[in-house]
Computed example of a mutant assay.
Amino acid sequence: MKPPKGIRILLVDDEPHILQFLELGLSSEGFEIKTAPDGASAVEIAPLFKPHVIILDVMMPEMDGFEAIARLKENLSYGAGIIMLTAKDEVENRVRGLTLGADDYMIKPFSFDELLARIQARLRNQFPDLLGEVVHGPFRLDDRRKEITHQDKVLELSPTEYELLKFMVMNHGIVLSKTLILDRVWGYDFGGEENIVEVYVRSLRDKLGDKEHRLIRTLRGVGYRVDLP
């Protein structure tokens, strides 16, 4: 599904071939793109360009991604979504980036389709009025009405069920751990048990008629994944 016109993405990376790859791919998807070769340039460009999503490499010369995240969060009061790009073994860096205010991360090398899914997730979470009604397979999500339709039937969902199903559908095809689900749906300060996720997933499956777990799949020891037809 092509995004509406006017969605702006800022790409920040010191590797020209990555910038070119992402710029060509995301431009063809209908996004407005600007690029920056380092954190300092991104901090200068962002207030003028006003991106909805920033895709930011961590390891860059002069001003690295961590300092850039902090500066961008200070300067962009409207809450642009920030997706970090990190190497596979940089667990501490990912934790540090999320603590500083990044919203998501991707590990290099990454799938372009997964990047698109994560961009859409950031837009839905942070700019719901921009996208309005969005269709993913048999699901129609209307964040303004807080309503999800499945196969042309409006689902009767509690507020938490709505947020959980929205998060899972918007990230369809991506494995979501219980910890990540708790952080994004219940919040970082949730003090309850992880089993609450199982309870809500069971309720969603009942309401979706997903008795065989073909729609919301369980990956034992890993998490859940929504598979769309």
Results as ranks from 00 to 15, higher is better:
M1A: 14
K2D: 08
K2H: 09
K2Q: 13
P3N: 01
P4S: 07
P4Q: 05
P4R: 06
K5Y: 12
I7W: 01
I9D: 08
L11T: 02
D14F: 01
P16E: 00
F21R: 00
G25L: 07
S27D: 08
S28E: 15
G30K: 04
E32H: 10
K34F: 06
K34L: 13
T35V: 13
A42N: 00
A42I: 03
E44Q: 14
A46T: 05
L48N: 14
F49V: 03
M60F: 09
P61T: 03
F66N: 02
E67F: 04
E67S: 01
A68S: 08
I69D: 03
I69K: 00
L76C: 10
A80S: 15
A80V: 01
I82K: 04
D89R: 11
E90R: 02
E92G: 09
N93V: 09
R94C: 12
R96L: 12
R96F: 07
R96P: 04
L98G: 00
L98W: 08
L100G: 08
G101F: 02
A102N: 04
D104N: 15
P109K: 01
D113L: 14
A117Q: 14
Q120V: 11
R122S: 15
Q126H: 14
L130C: 07
L131D: 02
V135L: 12
V135E: 13
H136G: 09
R140I: 10
L141G: 04
L141Q: 04
R145N: 11
I148E: 07
T149M: 08
T149D: 10
H150P: 07
V154L: 08
V154M: 09
L155M: 02
S158V: 06
P159K: 06
T160N: 13
Y162T: 00
N171M: 01
H172K: 03
G173P: 09
K178F: 02
I181N: 03
D183Y: 13
R184H: 11
Y188N: 15
D189R: 11
F190I: 05
E194V: 12
S203P: 00
R205H: 10
D206R: 15
K207N: 09
G209K: 04
R220G: 11
G223D: 10
R225A: 14
